[in-house]
């Protein structure tokens, strides 16, 4: 039995490290994009449109992963696309986390009318298809980086609120909370100093998962042409173009798709790996 457990942990450890390395690589790519990218991601060259990647016959070796229909370099666009993807992941993930976890804590620990209100809103939010909701919001506030972040926060706060509310409720019923109160700590202080540290591991896991979701939402919105402008390089925008020219130029779809796939997988494996680390049963 002990053997099986250490095996599970080792496997989880490998996945954790692989995911972390991939995400670190993306962060470096995003920061140093102008130095790493071989071409200008916006530069069009209609005479070299839809060139295949370097190993295929008819390729121009200076466009390593080929070009799209406007002759833009696929590799450079993927590299610059990391900037928007990561910006959306980190900013919207953090904001969603703060608002959602905050409301969840308040509702779960204070109960009463705050809980009634928050729970009612969670119910209403759960009755919306999230993708449709986000498209609707972007249509209302207009496309752009800020709008995407806002839409993700407005829609996904319930992911945190639901879980943290339940956790805060069960933590709040425990003896150590009562002792803190008896020892003279105020209610708000108890929430921040006693409850919050105990739910923090769950918050970290949810935050990691949320970042992966944010990357996907950005890609989906780019896919329906509601994200940033169509010129700016985003993975979703490239995938959207690739989907329409799939029979003529598969590489326009395949390379951004692989990048997006690995990124989403990494965020989620990182979250799952952290969950195992924090799980006392496995430890």
């Amino acid at each position: 039995m002990a053997d099986g457990r250490s095996q599970v942990r080792r496997r989880a450890g490998v996945r954790l490290w692989l995911s972390a390395i991939w995400l670190l690589l993306l962060i470096l790519l995003a920061i140093f994009a102008p130095h790493i990218a071989p071409k200008d991601p916006l530069e069009q060259d209609l005479f070299s449109g839809r060139l295949p990647p370097f190993w295929v016959h008819g390729a121009d070796k200076s466009f390593l992963l080929g070009t799209d229909s406007l002759g833009r370099d696929v590799l450079s666009r993927i590299i610059f696309g990391t900037r928007i993807a990561l910006a959306v992941a980190f900013i919207s993930g953090t904001l969603t986390c703060i608002i959602g976890a905050g409301l969840g804590l308040l509702a779960g620990f204070y109960r009463g009318w705050v809980d009634v209100l928050v729970s009612r809103f969670i119910d209403i939010w759960m009755a919306f298809p999230p993708v449709l909701f986000s498209i609707l919001l972007i249509a209302v506030i207009g496309p752009g980086l800020f709008s995407i972040i806002l839409a993700i926060v407005v829609i996904d706060w319930t992911r945190f609120a639901r879980v943290i509310r339940a956790e805060a409720m069960s933590q709040g019923a425990m003896d150590y909370v009562a002792s803190a109160r008896v020892a003279g700590r105020g209610k708000f202080g108890t929430m921040l100093r006693e409850i919050l540290p105990n739910v923090l591991p769950i918050i970290v896991v949810l935050l990691t998962l949320e970042m992966g979701i944010a990357v996907i939402v950005e890609a989906i919105l780019s896919f329906v042409n509601l994200s940033i402008s169509t010129d700016d390089p985003t993975w979703g925008g490239m995938i959207s173009e690739g989907r329409t020219s799939i029979h003529q130029a598969w590489w326009v779809l395949v390379f951004p798709l692989i990048t997006l796939f690995l990124t989403v997988l990494s965020f989620s494996q990182l979250g799952e790996g952290l969950k195992d680390r924090f799980d006392p049963v496995l430890r």
Binding site: G212, I213, I216, A219, I220, F223, L257, L260, F261, V264, L265, S268, Q269, E272
Partner: peptide, 8 residues
């Protein structure tokens, strides 16, 4: 299968 959403 769980890590990657339906869209991808």
């Amino acid at each position: 299968a769980l890590s990657v959403p339906d869209f991808l």
